[in-house]
C-alpha cells in the first residue's frame, strides 16, 4: 500500500480546468464514385462542442451509427477532423506535427471494446505492454520492465511474472481487459478513452472492471471519455453525460440531472428503451420512436430527430436547426421545445 501511495503522490497533480476542448468538430468521410469523383460525404460527426476537465469522467451515449466511435477516434488522433479543432491542454492537435502528435497519443489511453481483438494474438503480455514504451522511446529494458510491473500491479494482475509470458488466448476475458487497460495506462496518460469497455465481458467481471477503472481514474486524476449505449453503467461511472444522435450532441447534462429529468425527446426514448429487470415488464410493450436513424450522407434539414419525434413543431423543427438551450443546472438540450424555457 505504501508503494501505491508513493505512486499517487508523484503522479497526481490535481490540476483543475480544461484539459480537452472540442470546438465545432466535424468529421466527414468522402464517398467516391467509381473509385474517383465525389459522391457526397458521410457526416459522422457534424458540429460537436464540449470541454473535458482534468479528472472528469464523461459518458457519450447514443445508438449504433450515431458517430460516437468517429468522435472517439478523432480524439485519439486516428481520424483527421474535417473542420473544427481539438485542443489538448492548450495546444491544438492539428498544429502539433508528427512528434507532437506522437506525444499527444501517449497522453491519451485507449481501452477497446473487444479485449481479445485488441491484443495482438502473437505477442506475449510482456511484449504487448512493452510496445508503447518502445515506440515512445523508453530505451532501457529494466526501466520498461519496472513500468510494466508497476502498471500490472495497478490493474491487479498478481503475480505479475506469471502473466508476462502468456499469450492473450491463455487469459480470461476479464484478464484480457485488464491487460488492455494496463496498456492504456502504461504511458501514464491524462485521458483514457474507453469504447464500451465492459460490453463484451461477462456480467460477473463487469463490475470489477468498472470499479478498477473508476479507481484508476481517482488515483491518477484521469479524465475519462466513456462511450457506451448501456445506460445502466453510466450513473456508476461518469459525472456528465452527452447524448448523441446522428452526428450531433442533442443533450448534455450532469448524470443525475439527466437521468432524473431527461428533456430531449430522443433521450426520453433512449431511457424508455433501456430494460428494467422486473418480471412485471414481461407483458408490457414499450413505445419506441418510429422509423430508422437518418442517413448521415443526407441528414434531414432542421432538427435531425424531427422525422421520428412525437412532439415535432411543423415549420420550425423541420427547417431550423435547434441551438442548445439551458434547461437546468449545466443541462443543455438542443430542442425547440425548450425555446420558451430559455427565454
Amino acid at each position: 500500500m505504501t508503494e501505491n501511495n508513493v505512486v499517487v503522490d508523484t503522479r497526481t497533480e490535481h490540476k483543475e480546468g480544461k484539459l480537452l476542448t472540442i470546438e465545432n468538430l466535424q468529421v466527414w468521410f468522402e464517398l467516391r464514385r467509381f473509385g474517383f469523383g465525389n459522391a457526397g460525404y458521410v457526416k459522422a460527426v457534424d458540429g460537436v462542442n464540449f470541454d473535458l476537465h482534468y479528472g472528469e469522467a464523461i459518458a457519450v451515449v447514443g445508438e449504433s451509427g450515431c458517430g460516437k466511435s468517429s468522435l472517439m477516434k478523432t480524439i485519439l488522433g486516428l481520424n483527421i477532423p474535417t473542420r473544427g479543432e481539438v485542443t489538448f491542454d492548450g495546444t491544438k492537435i492539428s498544429g502539433m506535427g508528427t512528434k507532437g502528435l506522437k506525444w499527444y497519443r501517449s497522453q491519451v489511453g485507449y481501452v477497446q471494446q473487444d479485449p481479445f481483438g485488441a491484443l495482438a494474438p502473437f505477442m506475449t503480455v510482456e511484449r504487448i505492454l512493452e510496445e508503447p514504451l518502445i515506440i515512445n522511446g523508453v530505451k532501457s529494458k529494466t526501466e520498461r520492465l519496472r513500468r510494466i510491473h508497476k502498471t500490472m500491479e495497478e490493474v491487479k494482475m498478481f503475480p505479475v511474472d506469471d502473466f508476462l509470458n502468456k499469450f492473450p488466448h491463455m487469459l480470461s476475458g476479464g484478464q484480457q481487459q485488464r491487460v488492455v487497460i494496463a496498456r492504456a495506462m502504461i504511458m501514464e496518460p491524462k485521458i483514457i478513452v474507453a469504447d464500451e469497455p465492459v460490453s463484451m465481458l461477462d456480467a460477473s467481471v463487469r463490475v470489477e472492471i468498472l470499479k478498477l477503472m473508476r479507481g484508476l481514474q481517482e488515483t491518477h486524476n484521469l479524465a475519462m471519455i466513456f462511450i457506451t449505449h448501456d445506460l445502466s453503467t453510466v450513473r456508476f461511472f461518469s459525472e456528465r453525460i452527452f447524448v448523441m444522435y446522428a452526428g450531433k450532441m442533442v443533450e448534455k447534462s450532469p448524470v443525475d440531472e439527466l437521468l432524473d429529468d431527461p428533456r430531449h425527446p430522443y433521450t426520453l426514448a433512449l431511457l424508455a428503451a433501456s430494460p428494467e429487470p422486473d418480471a412485471a415488464n414481461a407483458h408490457t410493450y414499450k413505445e419506441v420512436p418510429p422509423g430508422e436513424p437518418p442517413s448521415l450522407v443526407t441528414p434531414p434539414p432542421g432538427c435531425r430527430f424531427h422525422p421520428r419525434c412525437p412532439h415535432v413543431i411543423k415549420g420550425l423543427c423541420d427547417e431550423k436547426e435547434p441551438p442548445e438551450f439551458l434547461t437546468g443546472p449545466e443541462h443543455y438540450t438542443a430542442c425547440w421545445l425548450f425555446q420558451s424555457e430559455q427565454a
Partner: peptide, 22 residues
C-alpha cells in the same frame, strides 16, 4: 482492420512498425 492495429496506431506506432511487427 483488427482492433489491435487500431490500438497500435492509438499509442503511436509508425507505419513501418505496424507493417512489419503487427
Amino acid at each position: 482492420e483488427s482492433p489491435y492495429i487500431e490500438a497500435a496506431r492509438a499509442y503511436g506506432a509508425g507505419s513501418g512498425r505496424i507493417i512489419f511487427q503487427y
